[in-house]
């Protein structure tokens, strides 16, 4: 018998992937939601201005933050609907592994959506975007996704097992990811906006990293109390 955390982690991720591939509901819904969200912002802001480039970073990350709520909201849903959680919790899986697997799955969801949505947003809103900027924006996406996933996994684990969960989650999640939106939008703007402000970009990226680490520690210190009754 060898229950290595890596094997458990892989098994949990494969499980999430299989569930998603069978239904494909989460990723598709998130993608469509993000597109609709950007259109709404276009009508709210874009039509009042010739060039939406200065707002592009803000529009992208405001939309992605709202989209993240959908993805985070799916966390633990199969476990709750199909009552599998008891089986997972009686298995000898360290709670850290459960939380990590959750977070990694969330990062994957978010990245999948962003691979499609972010380039489209750049086409829609940004004039004269350089191809190389895309790489820098990708770094922002990864950092911001890790930050959102860590916070999201912790908060979703509480909201999903509460009443009125679909109302509760956005109220819990959005205020705490405001700093992520500010920093990610700032970094994206620094890259895509007029005049590449790289030093600004890196400061925002460092902030995103710090945010992820701080909440990683908070999650690490508290997740035991969240999952175990």
């Amino acid at each position: 018998m060898s229950a290595s955390p890596l094997r458990q982690m892989r098994a949990l991720l494969v499980k999430d992937l299989r569930l998603e591939l069978r239904t494909r509901e989460t990723a598709v819904a998130m993608g469509l939601f993000a597109l609709v969200g950007m259109m709404i912002f276009q009508f709210a802001i874009g039509t009042r201005t010739d060039d939406a480039t200065p707002f592009a970073g803000g529009i992208i990350w405001a939309t992605l933050a709202l989209t993240a709520v959908l993805g985070v909201g799916r966390t633990w849903v199969p476990e709750r609907e199909q009552r599998v959680l008891d089986a997972l919790l009686t298995a000898p899986v360290p709670r850290l592994v459960l939380m990590l697997a959750r977070s990694v799955a969330l990062v994957l969801y978010l990245l999948t959506v962003q691979v499609v949505v972010v380039p489209m947003a750049i086409v829609f809103f940004v004039r004269d975007a350089a191809f190389s900027d895309l790489g820098l924006v990708a770094v922002v996406c990864v950092l911001a996704d890790v930050a959102i996933a860590v916070v999201g996994a912790l908060l979703a684990s509480m909201s999903v097992f509460s009443r009125a969960r679909e109302l509760l989650l956005p109220v819990l999640l959005l205020p705490s990811i405001i700093p992520v939106v500010i920093a990610a939008a700032g970094a994206t703007h620094a890259v895509l906006g007029p005049g590449n402000a790289l030093d600004e970009y890196w400061r925002y990226c460092v902030f995103l990293g710090v945010y992820a680490v701080v909440f990683g520690l908070v999650a690490f210190a508290t997740f035991d109390h969240v999952l175990d009754d």
């Binding site: 705490s176 405001i178 700093p179 920093a183 400061r203 902030f207």
Partner: peptide, 13 residues
């Protein structure tokens, strides 16, 4: 934990 981060992010922006 979110309080100082919010302070900082708003200030940086």
């Amino acid at each position: 934990a979110a309080v100082p981060l919010s302070f900082y992010s708003v200030r940086v922006a």
